[in-house]
């Protein structure tokens, strides 16, 4: 056959063969394939976008967290400082109160002691006076000449006093 003279048979078969191939492939191969490719590309695009937005959100969250943390730290410091101050103040106040109360109590105690002391001294004085009176009365009443007897009597009286 000729090199540059196209054969009619080959033209015929090539034309209809290629058109048939084109028809079959467009319908059953390229349409589903191109659709699948497009679908996949868009899904990848969406996934990338989602990842990007998730990353941004994460960054925002992290920044928020840090901000919150910093705020919390600041607040904690303030609270701690206040607490410290309050405790120092309270201790001071307690100390003052305690020393005041103690001074008052000491004062009271001193006063009571003084009163008691005075009362006791009065009592003792009274008792001595009474005893003296009694001893004198008994001595006088017995009317004793005997020295010995007198002495025994005095001893007996003294014993009585002790029993009292």
């Amino acid at each position: 056959m000729d090199l540059i003279n196209p054969g009619s048979g080959l033209i015929f078969w090539q034309l209809f063969g290629f058109l048939g191939l084109l028809f079959i492939l467009i319908k059953f191969a390229w349409k589903p394939m191109l659709a699948a490719l497009e679908e996949r590309e868009s899904s990848i695009q969406n996934a990338l976008k989602a990842a990007e937005s998730a990353r941004n959100e994460m960054a925002n969250l992290k920044a928020d967290n840090e901000k919150l943390l910093a705020e919390a730290r600041l607040e904690r410091d303030v609270i701690l400082k206040k607490a410290q101050e309050a405790s120092v103040k309270m201790i001071e106040e307690a100390k003052n109160e305690a020393s005041k109360v103690a001074a008052l109590q000491i004062e009271n105690a001193k006063a009571v002691i003084e009163t008691e002391k005075k009362a006791a001294l009065t009592e003792v004085k009274n008792q001595v006076a009474i005893l003296t009176l009694e001893v004198t009365e008994k001595l006088l009443r017995r009317n004793l000449t005997d020295e010995k007897a007198q002495k025994a009597l005095v001893d007996e009286f003294i014993k009585d006093i002790k029993l009292n």
């Binding site: 054969g7 015929f12 078969w13 090539q14 079959i24």
Partner: peptide, 24 residues
């Protein structure tokens, strides 16, 4: 008019079959 299945026509069918098989 000649419409023979020549050597090139057979070759064309082989090529088309391979392309179609792969694509399908």
């Amino acid at each position: 008019i000649e419409l023979s299945i020549t050597k090139n026509v057979v070759m064309m069918f082989i090529v088309m079959f391979l392309v179609a098989y792969l694509a399908l």
